[in-house]
Every structure is written in structure tokens, then in C-alpha cells.
């Protein structure tokens, strides 16, 4: 079924997208061993939209987010980013096969990813962390990249830390560097995996402020978060996941004040 669907919609050029959806996930399923993590998840994200995924832990939010840049493979269904199947392609027999590592890397370069645990490169300075990929993956001139990297560090309020070692920074500062690092690739889409969950409470605000600024600047964002205040303020749409499926989706006001689903109500009563 998947094969046929993919074949029918992927002629030589991706079909024109009437709604300009940057992410289009259809019937995504994923299991780890016997455990079903995602069941028929459908998610569409429009360009410029800020989508926040909420739900109890174990609901599959992080896994779903990681499938969008194929840090996690999927068992069935399909995910398109910018109209292209991510990590997969349709071969000349109409079968869906893996893309080459190089091709997947090219796709990922346009998708920023911010991790819960920052994952900065400890053997490099802050500036090197931010400029590395633009220089070595995009092959842009180093001086130009460094200028832009400094500009980004300025934007996240860390201009004076450019030459610091990453391990000398606080968690909140590290996460802001990680955001600058992702932005240095000028991504079309930013994915955030619980970006404030590993932070001390007093540092959550500084990271959320940076993310809010990004959203206001028109960046397309998909955020897995437990920060309900941020969600209410910044999200265009809230997606509620439970037990591997999306149970509800809508504007934050509507979902928070008038949830349709019982499980949403239960979840919200615990976190609001």
C-alpha cells in the first residue's frame, strides 16, 4: 500500500503543494521490537507554522519528531519534507528504497534539530560549533560563515562567548549555542526535542525567549515541549499525542480550554 501510494505521488518532480506544506507525514508507523511506538500518525505542517507537540511521556512525541529528519527510520507510511521523501526514494521499479547516506545528509542539512541534551561538540569552541557545518557541509567561505556565526551568537545573547569552551557554559547557554548552531545552516525547518527539559528552572526562560524570537521571525518550528505557558503563547497549533497516535490537534486556546478528548483533559489537568 505504501509502495503504491509513494509511486503514484512521486513522478520525476514532487507534486505542487496547494497548501505549501513543508512537512507531510502520512500513516507513519514505528515499532521498537514488539512495542508499537507510532500508529498511523498523520501530521502536516505549513510553512511558517509553529506546532507544539504535547502529551504524556511515552506517547511517541520524540520518536515522531526524530522521524522527520530520519534520526529514526519508519516501518511504514511516508514522510515528506519540502515535497521529498525523507531518507527514502522511489526507485525505477516504483519501490521505496533507502536514500544514500550522502543524499540523506543533504536533506538533513536543511532541517535544524535541537536536542534535549544540547549535544554540543566539546572538542571545539563555541564559534567552531556554530560555523563547522556551514564550512564543511555547505562549503561556504570560512570568514563569511564566522561573521554569520557571530551574528547568530549575538542574536541568542552569547556574542562574548564565541571563543569559550562549551563545557564552561551553563545548560541554558549551551542550549542557546545549540540553537545558533542549527540556525547557521539556514534551515527551512527547525525541530526542537524537549529543549528545556534538561535545564535548571532558572534557565528555561532564556531558551524559551530565543525560541519565541525565532517564531516571531517566521521560522517553521515543530517543538516537543512540556512548557504549557510557552505553548499557549507561541504555538499556532497544538498537537496532542497519546499512546503513539495524535488524539487532538487545534489552536492552543481551543485545545486548552475546550479539549475534545478525555485523555487530553486528563493530561492537561496534570500539567496546567
Amino acid at each position: 500500500m505504501t509502495t503504491q501510494h509513494a509511486a503514484s505521488t512521486s513522478a520525476s518532480t514532487p507534486p505542487p503543494d496547494p497548501h505549501d506544506n513543508i512537512v507531510q507525514a502520512v500513516d507513519v508507523c514505528k515499532s521498537f521490537g514488539d512495542k508499537k511506538i507510532l500508529t498511523d500518525v498523520n501530521l502536516t505542517v505549513a510553512r511558517g507554522e509553529v506546532v507544539v507537540m504535547v502529551g504524556p511521556s511515552g506517547a511517541g512525541k520524540t520518536t515522531m519528531l526524530r522521524t522527520i529528519n530520519r534520526l529514526e527510520s519508519i516501518d511504514s507510511g511516508e514522510i515528506r519534507v519540502n515535497g521529498e521523501l525523507i531518507g527514502q526514494r522511489v526507485n525505477k521499479h516504483g519501490k521505496v528504497v533507502e536514500r544514500s547516506a550522502r543524499d540523506l545528509a543533504r536533506q538533513r542539512a536543511d532541517i535544524g534539530f535541537v536536542f534535549q541534551h544540547f549535544n554540543l561538540f566539546p572538542h571545539m569552541s563555541v564559534l567552531e560549533n556554530v560555523s563547522l557545518a556551514a564550512v564543511e557541509v555547505r562549503h561556504q567561505p570560512k570568514s563569511k560563515v564566522n561573521d554569520y556565526a557571530r551574528e547568530l551568537l549575538e542574536r541568542v545573547g552569547l556574542a562574548e562567548k564565541a571563543d569559550a569552551r562549551t563545557r564552561s557554559l551553563s545548560g541554558g547557554q549551551q542550549q542557546r549555542v545549540a540553537i545558533a548552531r542549527a540556525l547557521a545552516m539556514r534551515p527551512a525547518l527547525m525541530l526542537f526535542d524537549e529543549p528545556t527539559s534538561a535545564l535548571d528552572p532558572e534557565m528555561v526562560g532564556e531558551v524559551l525567549t530565543v525560541m519565541k524570537g525565532l517564531a516571531e521571525a517566521g521560522m517553521t518550528m515543530i517543538v516537543v515541549s512540556h512548557e504549557m505557558g510557552f505553548t499557549r503563547e507561541v504555538a499556532d497549533r497544538v498537537v496532542v499525542m497519546d499512546a503513539g497516535t495524535i488524539i487532538e490537534s487545534g489552536a492552543p486556546d481551543q485545545v486548552f480550554s475546550n479539549p475534545k478528548h478525555d485523555r487530553t483533559r486528563q493530561f492537561l489537568s496534570k500539567v496546567l
Binding site: L71, A105, R108, A109, F115, L132, A133, V137, A178
Partner: peptide, 23 residues
Amino acid sequence: VDRGQNEAALSLGMTPMHSMRRI
């Protein structure tokens, strides 16, 4: 080396070989 290091490198558009060598 923490698995997250490789994931961060991949998410920036590095190939697995590039990540191995640089990260």
C-alpha cells in the same frame, strides 16, 4: 563517545563518515 554527538553531526548534514572523522 555519546551517541548524541553522532546524531548532532548527522542532523547538521554530515555523512556518517564525516561525523566519524570530525566528531
